[in-house]
Design a protein around this nucleic acid. Structure first.
Lengths: 157, 157
DNA sequence: GGAATTTACTGGCATATGCCACCAAATAGA
DNA sequence: TCTATTTGGTGGCATATGCCAGTAAATTCC
């Protein structure tokens, strides 16, 4: 039964929510980067810069949890931003294990610039998808990304 | 204004659909891989194996488009699967530029095994999220991943 | 207070993805 | 037919992410 009838029978992303989300993610990444593109910064980097801007000097741990990212993945992802002087790490006063993150001046400037470009992309998304549905979708996705959802997914028994 | 009031003011994923999808994607990847985990294969590899199984010896180009992936990215992603003998490439009869993909016997077996494990994860997702909403979400995401949506996003003018 | 355990990061390794430069085959044009 | 252009893939380079194995600092337990 491996080879179905012939051509485009079925598709994994119509059955698997994980595949569906990843696939949509690739598309959006494309669309948003086209719209913001020429700064050389990626969509993820914009997200990260923005979230760091929104936050108050978060520790790597906290930022990673917030972003629903592995701590080490966050560390890796920050490297190019640190190298390019957009972000900097500094030690916590109380706990010497902890490193906190903040935007540099350059980072703030870039983030501001990116936000303008991002806005265009987001407006296009809302136009194509519907403003209301857009917001609803983001909330839905935030729920899926929440610890409560993870608990419901795993825990229920 | 870089540092807002204090703690958890706002979040980029509540404003940016792209960030929202990526973040949810990270969570789901985690959850699904935990549930399927011990085969050593990733969620993406399951998607790919499944889609190759669903398709009829697609060319790399076609498969890439179907998966909404960059052609070269697909090539890279297939490498470990080819190396491990789950998938194989073979030339097209007519067009010597074209390479087609298919599962090997081992690939078919693994895919079958993975499908069983995946089903558990998907059932948990449906249970936690709601069967109906789950299906609806997949359709929504398929729409977002569609060329029509890309056109609407870019083209409208 | 000192050993055992936990916590926050780092570094190495592997996959996931994309862009760009290049190559070869196929196709359009003259 | 010969040349210019288009197409389908590959390889190199860079970021995105995650796991695992340390490491050092903090906390828990005698």
């Amino acid at each position: 039964m491996t080879d179905k009838i012939d051509g485009k029978d079925d598709a994994i992303w119509l059955h698997c929510s994980n595949s569906a989300v990843r696939r949509a993610s690739r598309q959006l990444n494309q669309l948003y980067e086209d719209a913001m593109g020429d700064t050389g910064l990626k969509g993820t980097q914009f997200s990260l810069l923005s979230q760091i801007g929104f936050s108050n000097k978060p520790s790597l741990k906290v930022l990673a949890e917030t972003m629903v990212m592995d701590l080490s993945a966050l560390g890796h992802t920050l490297k190019p931003l640190i190298r390019d002087g957009l972000v900097e790490l500094f030690p916590d006063d109380k706990d010497k294990r902890v490193k906190r993150v903040r935007l540099t001046q350059a980072g703030v400037a870039i983030q501001r610039d990116l936000t303008g470009r991002w806005r265009i992309a987001q407006d296009r998304f809302d136009a194509a998808f519907g403003q209301e549905k857009s917001e609803e979708l983001r909330h839905t996705l935030a729920f899926i990304a929440s610890p409560e959802f993870a608990k419901a997914f795993e825990g229920d028994a």
